[in-house]
Simulated assay, not measured.
Amino acid sequence: MKLCFFGSSLVSSYWNGAATYYRGLLKALAELGHEITFYEPDAFERQAHRDMADPDWARVVVYPGTADGWKRALEDAARQADVLVKASNIGVFDAELDEALSDIRSPALRIYWDVDAPATLEEMAATPQHHLHRVIPRYDLVLTYGGGRPVIDGYRAVGARDCIPIYNALDPHTHFPVQPSQTFAADLGFLGNRMPDREARVDTFFLETATLLPDKAFVIAGSGWDDKAMPPNVRRIGHLGTGLHNTFFCSTLATLNINRASMARYGYSPPTRIFEAAGAGACLITDRWPGIEDFLEPDREVLVAASAAEVARHVADLTPARAEQLATRARHRILADHTYAHRARDVDRLLNGRLGKRETIGTTGKFGKIEAAE
């Protein structure tokens, strides 16, 4: 089927944490025979910071970041689509696209795909006049890249016909073990952009840990950290293209995952970094959030911490042999249960069922049956 997807960017990860999610899932759907067209705006200098050429498994349409640009792109998509997708947080004309795609005259299945569902639901709860209150009920389906039962219930409460999480995963052809580099060598590494609802947690779980362990080396990569005050044992890398992510993950004794605040509150929202770092063979330490055990087993496949003191204790106690043991188990688990091939098969069954019946149905996946909305 023809799937037309409006998202932030497929070809650039610059200020675009969802890039590898889009790539992994849409590539896997293309391998199942779906025809993918990805529409992205020319905005935020992403085209100047491409880290991927147009892939052979998708047609990429870069439209001007203007009112006329998105309207022409949507007209193009509506003429051909079997499935029309509007992702959250494109960054320009989001509200306009949300409205227009939800109400477009087309036989296509219309999907709102939220790549930051906990934050979206909290924003809607705080803003009674938010446009999504009237828009969400018009979509045929809401998909999210995490959130579990709290997100499902939250979206149904605001009128979604149905909500189904499609979790992040690993593309083993993109993230895999490589040789380490002294450029990124450290005892603990963190890769993530500076975001308002994550910065305080980075302060706690990463920078406070560095203060507690002055004899250990720390490295932080991602955009926005240049003017952030940091302990002297923290080295900044700046924006890191996806082509260097494997090397980054393989060069530190351990990699730290830090969820954004809303994702930690809702739980069941493993970021892409969890799967990508494990796929590259990294030893993972993560902040604590509900549902981690559904993806990786604590103390056997991942180390879990509820405070800087606990992160510091993990780092202080970690030996290369223990780190390798944890990393190997995590990679095996991810490859067995959490690749984008797994996720794409779930989406493929879902789309075929919806297009075949055009009625609200449930789906059965790895995390149990999700009942249809009434």
Rank of each mutant, 00 (worst) to 15 (best):
A221K: 05
R236K: 14
L256S: 02
T174M: 15
I220W: 09
I237H: 05
G238Q: 10
F206Y: 12
H173M: 14
H173F: 14
M195G: 14
R198C: 01
L207W: 00
L253D: 05
L253W: 03
F176Q: 08
G189S: 09
F218I: 11
I166Y: 03
A217E: 12
Y167D: 06
I164R: 08
R235H: 09
L188W: 00
R194P: 09
D226L: 11
R235N: 09
Q182F: 12
E208Y: 04
I164E: 03
G238K: 11
A217L: 12
D227C: 06
S181P: 01
G224A: 14
I237T: 05
G241L: 02
D197S: 14
T209R: 05
G241N: 10
H175V: 01
K216P: 02
V219S: 05
T174A: 13
T252Y: 00
F190L: 08
V178K: 00
R236T: 10
L213K: 03
S251E: 02
D171F: 08
V219C: 04
V178D: 02
F190P: 00
M195Y: 13
P177G: 09
P180M: 03
V202N: 04
A221F: 07
G238W: 09
L207Q: 06
F248V: 06
A210Y: 00
C163M: 07
I166M: 11
P177T: 02
H245D: 01
H175L: 08
E208T: 09
A200D: 14
G238I: 06
L253H: 07
L253N: 01
L256N: 10
E199W: 13
Y167T: 09
N168T: 12
N233M: 04
A217K: 11
A217C: 14
L207Y: 08
A200W: 08
N193W: 09
P231T: 03
A221T: 04
E199D: 13
W225Y: 14
V178H: 04
D197M: 12
P232V: 04
I258R: 05
L256P: 01
V219E: 02
Y167E: 06
T209W: 02
L240S: 03
E199H: 12
H173Y: 15
K216M: 08
G224E: 11
V202F: 03
A185R: 04
H239E: 10
V219M: 10
A229N: 12
N233L: 07
G238E: 08
T252P: 02
P177S: 07
N233V: 05
F206E: 01
T211A: 13
A254G: 13
I237V: 14
P231R: 07
M230R: 14
G238V: 11
A186V: 07
F248S: 03
T209H: 03
T209Y: 01
K228L: 11
P172C: 06
M230W: 12
D203N: 13
F184W: 06
E199S: 13
L170I: 10
P172A: 05
P232G: 05
T209K: 06
R201N: 08
L253M: 11
T174F: 13
R194K: 15
S251Q: 02
A200N: 12
G222F: 08
D227S: 15
F205Y: 15
F248K: 02
N168F: 11
F190A: 02
Q179T: 13
A229D: 15
D171I: 04
S223K: 15
